[in-house]
Amino acid sequence: MSGEAVPHQVKPIAEKIGFIGGGNMAKAICEGIVNKGLVKYSQINVSGPNMENLVTWKEKGAHVSIENGVTVEHSDVIFLSMKPHILPCAIANMYDTLKSPSPKPKLFVSVLAGVTMEQLENVLCQLEPRIIRVMPNTPMMVGEGCTVFSPGPKATEHDIQIVKSILSVSGVCKQVPESLINAVGALSGSGPAFVYLMIEALADGGVKMGIPRAMALEFASQTVLGAAKMVKDTGRHPAVLRDEVCSPGGTTIAGIHAMEKGGVRAALMDAIEAATKRSEELGAKKHG
C-alpha cells in the first residue's frame, strides 16, 4: 500500500453564495471553495459597481450584476467583500435595488477590516441580518489560508457551521472573540504581504551573490515554505529550530547577527502593530 495520505472528502453544500464586491479577497475565497468542490460557480452571485470588473466571474459561470440587491435576493450567504470605505455606497445600492422591500433574513459574512459587528448591524438593520465577521487571507486561493471568524448574537449554529465549511476547506479556521479580529487580521490577513517582501529580499540577496534571478526566487520561496512547514508540523518553537541551524562560528549565525543589527525582528513586530492600529482607525470611521 502507498504511504500517501487519503485526501479529505469535501461534502458539497446547496447554499447559494453571494459576494458584494468581486475583488481579490472575494476571488480567493471563491476559488478556494470551488477548487475543493464545496460549491460550483453556478451557485455564485457577484455584484459590483463596474460590469467590466465582473467579466472574469461571468466567464467562469458565476451570476453577475451591478445591483447589490440582486445578489442579496438570490443568495443564502452574502459576503461583504468590498473595501471598508465603500460600505455606505454598497449598502445604499443594495437597498435601492432590492426588488422585495423585506426579503427573508439573510446571513451576512463581513471581511471588512475594522468594521465592527455593531456598525454592520446598524447599516443592515432593515434586513434583520444574521452577521458573522471573518478575517481570511489570500492564500486561501491555494488551499493554505489562515482565517478567523466571530459570530454575531443572532447567528445560528447552522450559520456557524456553513461559514466554517466555507473557510476551513482552504486552510486553518478558528473562532475568536471579536476583540481579536483586528490583531489576527494584521497577523494573518496582512502577514502574507510581509512574507512576500521577505521572499523578495532573500531572492535579491541571492542575486547579489551571483545566483540567477529565477533560481534565487525559486529557492527563496521554497526555503520559506519549508521553514514554515517545519514549525507547523513539528510543533517546536522557532527559536529551537533556528538554533539547530546555527553552528558555532558558522555562516548562519553570521547572517542572524546581520539581521538583528538590521532590526528585522523589531520591524516585523512593528508591522503587525501598525496594521492592527490601522484596522482600528478604519473601524473608528462612520460607516452609515
Rank of each mutant, 00 (worst) to 15 (best):
S2L: 09
E4T: 08
P7V: 02
P12A: 10
K16F: 04
G18F: 04
G23D: 00
G23K: 07
N24F: 09
M25V: 05
C30S: 15
E31W: 11
I33C: 06
K36L: 04
V39T: 12
K40I: 08
S42V: 05
Q43P: 06
P49I: 08
N50C: 09
E52L: 12
K58G: 10
E59C: 05
G61P: 05
H63E: 11
E67P: 02
V70C: 13
T71R: 02
T71S: 04
H74L: 11
S75C: 02
I78G: 00
L80G: 00
L80W: 01
L80D: 01
S81V: 09
P84Q: 02
P88H: 09
I91T: 07
N93A: 12
M94F: 08
D96Q: 15
T97Y: 08
L98A: 08
K99W: 04
K99R: 13
K99S: 14
S102E: 13
P105M: 04
L107I: 07
V109W: 07
V109M: 01
V111R: 03
G114R: 07
E118Y: 10
L120F: 07
L124R: 03
C125S: 15
C125A: 14
E128A: 13
V134R: 00
V134S: 02
V134F: 00
P136K: 06
V142L: 12
G143N: 10
T147F: 09
S150G: 04
P151K: 04
G152Y: 04
K154F: 10
E157G: 01
E157C: 03
Q161G: 00
Q161S: 14
I162R: 03
S165W: 00
S165C: 09
I166V: 11
I166D: 01
Q175G: 00
E178A: 05
S179V: 10
L180I: 02
I181E: 07
N182Q: 11
S188M: 10
S190M: 13
F194I: 06
F194S: 07
V195Y: 03
I199L: 10
D204Y: 08
I211H: 00
L217F: 14
E218L: 13
T223R: 04
L225T: 09
A228L: 08
K229G: 00
H237F: 02
L241A: 03
R242Y: 05
G250F: 11
A254H: 14
A254I: 03
I256K: 08
A258D: 08
A258S: 14
E260P: 04
E260N: 13
K261R: 13
R265F: 10
L268A: 11
L268W: 01
M269F: 15
E273P: 01
A274S: 13
K277A: 12
E280R: 12
E281K: 12
L282R: 03
L282S: 09
A284E: 13
A284L: 10
K286H: 14
H287Q: 02
